[in-house]
């Protein structure tokens, strides 16, 4: 497949990129690794007039530690380099697992954390060629008024398949968003929206510049699991990110987030409450998994049946809790 024609702007500072974004009048897209955007452009589902390259902006490509011990991930850092990052491995191994679960080594070499966090939602009826889409009524995601995934639905049900998104939500990460006026911070849990069209909080003239992961206490345990029918190089049928603080057998600050089955990562609050109540006992974990099944709300038959998605969610909750139970405490080095 061929790329459509577009103008390319190579930005060397964040300011240049933001200026180009604003000038683009909504017809401009940020190109980081291109592993999502370029594929969509080849399908002609994105036809930006201008594409802004940000790979040469140094400030977007660094990992630093904040004064409060939080981890600052530049949006342009490649997934490969984050996979090797010792700070992530030590303080939130679950995020490390989510990062290495993305695509293949080649894709992680190109793809960035910002790109994966902002991954476009996907649908059988949207991610298709022009010819394919011409055979059906224009769907909501393509600017029309129908949803082919759920007939009569008032919103778009395209699925957010990002592997890092559920983990970022579970970690209470903050997304730092910039435009020409300045920056604003949005919690990851508010960044993602249950709408396949407006799937995140970014406005057309804004870009994600940084993701901040709070330090967490020394009792924090994190885990991530992804299920696909093939052993690698595949989008998840479902994935899960979880974080919990375990102290003297008690669980607190429980975050359990299911991804890749809805338009946004699903935060399982009732399930989390069950874990805070019942802890990581066998019975408690079973009860939490059962709760998860009922907590998911309406699901589509996109990519797999709603019933199968529910089953996977239940299994994932059980497995992630078992992993959290077995995982050792954070091995955060003294003084850091």
């Amino acid at each position: 497949m061929r790329l459509p024609r577009f103008e390319y702007v190579k930005a060397s500072t964040t300011g240049e990129a933001l200026a180009a974004l604003q000038a683009g009048d909504g017809q401009t897209r940020i190109l980081a690794g291109g592993t999502d955007l370029l594929v969509n452009m080849k399908y002609r589902i994105e036809r930006p007039a201008t594409v802004i390259g940000i790979r040469t902006i140094d400030e977007l490509c660094s990992v630093t530690t904040g004064s409060d011990g939080s981890l600052h991930l530049g949006a342009g850092v490649t997934l490969s380099s984050l996979a090797e990052n010792s700070l992530i491995k030590e303080s939130c191994p679950g995020l490390g697992r989510a990062i290495t679960a993305v695509g293949s080594k080649h894709i992680r070499n190109m793809g960035t954390i910002g790109g994966n966090a902002c991954l476009n939602t996907r649908c059988w009826y949207y991610n298709q060629s022009q010819l394919w889409r011409d055979a059906r009524e224009v769907c909501r995601k393509a600017g029309g008024n129908v949803c082919h995934a759920i007939n009569g639905s008032e919103r778009c049900h395209a699925i957010n398949s990002s592997d890092t998104a559920p983990m970022l939500v579970a970690l209470d990460a903050e997304m730092v968003i910039q435009n020409r006026e300045g920056e604003r911070r949005v919690l990851a849990r508010e960044f993602y929206r249950n709408d396949g069209v407006r799937y995140n909080a970014l406005e057309p003239e804004e870009m994600l510049s940084r993701i901040e992961i709070p330090r967490g206490n020394t009792e924090r345990r994190t885990a991530f699991i992804k299920i696909c029918s093939r052993r690698g190089l595949d989008f998840a049928m479902a994935n899960i990110g979880a974080a919990v603080s375990v102290k003297a057998g008690r669980c607190s600050q429980v975050r359990i987030v299911i991804g890749a089955i809805a338009s946004h990562p699903l935060i399982l609050e009732k399930t989390a409450a069950v874990v805070e109540e019942g802890g990581l006992s066998e019975g408690g974990m079973e009860q939490a998994a059962d709760t998860a099944r009922t907590e998911l709300g309406t699901l589509t038959n996109l990519f797999s049946s709603a019933g199968y998605k529910r089953q996977l969610a239940q299994v994932l909750v059980k497995r992630v809790l078992q992993e959290l139970k077995g995982s050792s405490r954070n091995k955060r080095r003294a003084g850091k």
Binding site: R230, G232, L233, D234
Partner: peptide, 25 residues
């Protein structure tokens, strides 16, 4: 693994990402 999903005469998964053929793994 392999199934070409067809709806109204259209293939729903006409790509190597959507069509789940096995990999060397």
């Amino acid at each position: 693994f392999e199934e070409r999903l067809v709806e109204n005469g259209q293939v729903l998964n006409p790509s190597m990402a959507g069509y789940k053929n096995p990999r060397p793994f």
